[in-house]
Structure formats: C-alpha cells, structure tokens
Simulated assay, not measured.
Amino acid sequence: MSIADIRNEYERFSLDESEMAEHPREQFHQWLKQAIEWDVAEPTAMTLATADEHGRPSARIVLLKGYDEQGVTFYTNYHSRKGLDIDHNPWASLLFFWPTLQRQIRLEGPVNRISTAESEHYFNSRPLASRIGAWASPQSEPITRQELEQRFEHYAATLGEHPTRPEHWGGLRLTPQHVEFWQGRANRLHDRLVYELNDQEQWIMDRLAP
C-alpha cells in the first residue's frame, strides 16, 4: 500500500454555528470535557509551535496544566528551545488533536510567563522525582544518558525531600486571540468554525472553508 492511499473517513459528528458557545473558552471547556469522558488518549496533550528570532519554526508536544479567562497554561524550562524561542518571538500556536472524536482545536496568541506564585504552587504539587528532574535536566542541551542520570542522582542526594523551584523553570500562558474548532466530516468537507478577537476585545465567529 502506498502511504498516499492511507486515509480515514470522518463521519462521527458535525459542527454547526447554532451549537457553538458565545465564548471560545466555554466551547473549549465543552470539547475537553467530552475528550476526557470519551477516554481519549492523552486528552491534555497539545502541539506547541514556536519560531526563533530567524523565523525558523519548531514544534513539540506539551501538556495542558490549566486554562481560565487569562489563557492556556503549560510548564517548561525557560532555557529550553521553546523557552528561548518565546523570549525572541512571544507569539505561538497550540494544537489539540483527538482522533477518536475526529476533532482539532487550534489556539494562537502571545505567550507570557505566569507569576512566580503560580509557578511555585504548581511545582510543589508535582511528584518528587519530577521536581528533581527539573533541576537535573539542562533541557535542549547536548548530554549523554550517563551524565543525565548522574545529575539526577546528584540532585536527589542534595536537594532532599522538599526541593525548591529552580528559577529557570516555570509556567507559560498563551492568551488566545484566534481559536479554531475543527470537526472532521465526510468527503473532506470538514467543519471549521473560528473565533477571532477584534479591536474591541469582542469574539467574532466565522466559518472557514475546509
């Protein structure tokens, strides 16, 4: 079989303007709740796309850790590639893909660091091994497996049971200005409904051609 011949038909659901919430956050909440209820694999996994100071893009999977009226929050090493990208170009895109539901959600907007207090609170809620790992891993830098494990052992021995949060590790929040809800449909006539924030801070919804 040719790779080009691999395809699936999307016929499970539809998406109509009359079904959409007035605010994209509420629509996001509804879809995420359904993804969790349907036991979708990794429902909080999202692709984060960034670009460096030269406009060169990169993408990776991160995990959603919170969302509210301020935006969508995830955590990382600020010295990682994504952290440095955002320092240079604080505009990014997040993409959720739930194949079981034949759905995607795309969010675009500026990214900013969350408060120290918020980062501290989440860091202290993590398992001990994860907190040690935040110290041990010089994320995105070259390292051997042996060096990484040695660093973990070193910090596990020296930090104790209550490690503090490293200053280079914390939360980032994307504040959406563009949110698209994509529902797969038969014959590739997919539903794409997008919310766009206008100059009056109002959300305007449109349907896009698939």
Rank of each mutant, 00 (worst) to 15 (best):
A156Q: 10
P110K: 13
E149K: 15
E149Y: 14
G109Y: 03
W135E: 01
T175S: 15
R145A: 14
H162D: 05
F96S: 02
I114A: 09
A156E: 04
A156N: 06
A134I: 07
E167P: 03
F181H: 02
E167T: 10
E167V: 10
W135Q: 02
I143K: 14
E153L: 15
R151Y: 00
A157C: 04
R151W: 00
S115I: 01
I105N: 00
S115H: 09
S115Q: 06
S130H: 07
N112A: 13
P127S: 11
T164C: 09
N112M: 06
V179M: 10
E141A: 13
L101Q: 02
T144P: 03
G109C: 09
S125H: 15
Q102R: 11
I105Q: 00
R103Q: 04
H154Q: 12
S125Y: 15
P142W: 02
P176T: 01
T144C: 04
W135V: 04
E120N: 14
Q104W: 13
R103L: 07
I132W: 12
T175K: 15
P99Y: 12
I132Y: 12
E120C: 06
T175A: 14
L95S: 04
G171C: 09
F96T: 02
E167D: 12
R145K: 15
R126P: 08
S119Y: 07
Q150M: 11
P127K: 13
S119L: 08
A129Y: 15
T144D: 02
R126H: 13
N124E: 10
R173F: 05
Y122V: 02
E153Y: 14
H121D: 08
H162I: 03
T116Q: 15
H162R: 12
G133N: 09
T116C: 10
I143D: 04
R145W: 08
P110T: 01
P110L: 01
P99M: 11
Q102G: 11
W169I: 05
L172D: 00
T100L: 15
T100M: 11
I114S: 10
L107Y: 02
R126Q: 08
V111D: 00
E153N: 15
T164W: 08
E180V: 03
G160S: 06
R131G: 11
I105A: 01
R113T: 01
R151K: 11
E167H: 08
H154D: 03
I114D: 01
E161W: 05
R106D: 00
E161M: 08
L174M: 06
A157I: 01
R113H: 12
F123G: 04
F123P: 05
T100V: 14
N112F: 09
H154V: 05
H178N: 14
V111M: 02
E118F: 13
A129M: 14
S130G: 03
Y155F: 15
V179S: 06
G160N: 07
W135Y: 06
I114M: 12
R151P: 00
A117N: 13
R126L: 12
F152S: 05
